[in-house]
Nucleic acid binder design. Structure first.
Ligand code: SF4
Ligand code: SF4
Lengths: 156, 156
DNA sequence: ATATAAGAGGACCGGATAAGTCCTGATACT
DNA sequence: AGTATCAGGACTTATCCGGTCCTCTTATAT
């Protein structure tokens, strides 16, 4: 259903909790603050740390800290960090495994534009936009072309 | 990876083939024209017919025909037809199955904006935009705000 | 120095979901 | 009548994701 993975969803929740808690927080702490199972939180944090979205402090009194403020963290990056690069179809992906029909497919490469459109939409919304009301204007400012001309919203 | 299902991908391929072939075409015919396995093509066509994107003619000399020109067929509709409504997270979906953390989740409902952004991006691109060069301008016209301000394209 | 608290980095299993195949009917042309 | 074609499922298989756990390293505190 064009749904993003639960891990990604959790990643956002964790990041926001990390922001509102401030300072350094441990994985179990975040888990109990967000109602997300602790092992899963740990997993998410490790992924985020590996891609540099959060910084980790090891040892006693350790934990995690945001590497960047939420306002400088577009959703696209979180998704890319957890789920891998955004690639709607196989022929858009950079990975070696290409699509079977690559040859003799009239659509090969045609998805690029759609992919970019989504990537840009996702790059224009930061986590800060998602949490507060202040984000409403920010999102609108990033997309001034949100004119109600296309009314194909009944898309089932 | 925020990838759409293969069936959806095939659906687009089939629809385009249906357009360029013109007139009425049978499932096996489309299959051999697109290098997509025939049973799969049949399945896709049935789904598309059920949602009204193509019209079917039964009996001998029957087949499928486009219900609408490609120019009036946004990608969003194809995706919605095959994969179901676009719902990035569980709490955006209209289905009864809600997310576990719905309560006590600070993000509940916050995905709506992101979801809409994607839906609109997808609604603004028609299949006609994807196939021809003529589509390039059409897509650009639909999104005049594609200014290169956000340079977070290194999203892995 | 030792004990302890925390993350790093995998390996692992089970369940969900999608992909692909096939079968049995209904329908309309010839 | 006969045949070509779609309709609508049921079914099987493959793949991927979610979730759990184990062991090792690192750093603080006593
Ligand atoms: S080559 Fe064609 S069938 Fe393969 S992923 Fe690209 S668009 Fe889809
Ligand atoms: S944002 Fe929160 S409520 Fe919505 S699906 Fe994710 S965890 Fe569930």
């Amino acid at each position: 259903m064009l749904r993003l993975s639960k891990l990604t969803d959790y990643a956002v929740v964790v990041l926001v909790q990390l922001a509102r808690g401030g300072a350094v927080q441990t994985a179990p702490g975040i888990a109990c603050a967000t109602a997300v199972p602790e092992p899963t939180v740990a997993k998410v944090l490790k992924i985020l740390a590996a891609t540099g979205l959060v910084t980790s402090l090891r040892g006693a009194r350790g934990g995690y800290r945001l590497a960047r403020p939420l306002a400088a963290l577009p959703v696209a990056e979180v998704i890319a960090a957890v789920d891998g690069p955004i690639a709607l179809t196989a022929c858009v992906d950079v990975s070696p495994v290409a699509c079977e029909q690559q040859r003799s497919c009239p659509m090969s490469g045609r998805w690029l534009r759609v992919n970019e459109a989504i990537r840009e939409a996702l790059a224009g919304i930061t986590l800060a936009d998602m949490v507060g009301e202040t984000g409403a204007e920010a999102a609108r400012a990033a997309h001034p072309a949100r004119l109600p001309q296309m009314t194909i919203e009944e898309a089932l």
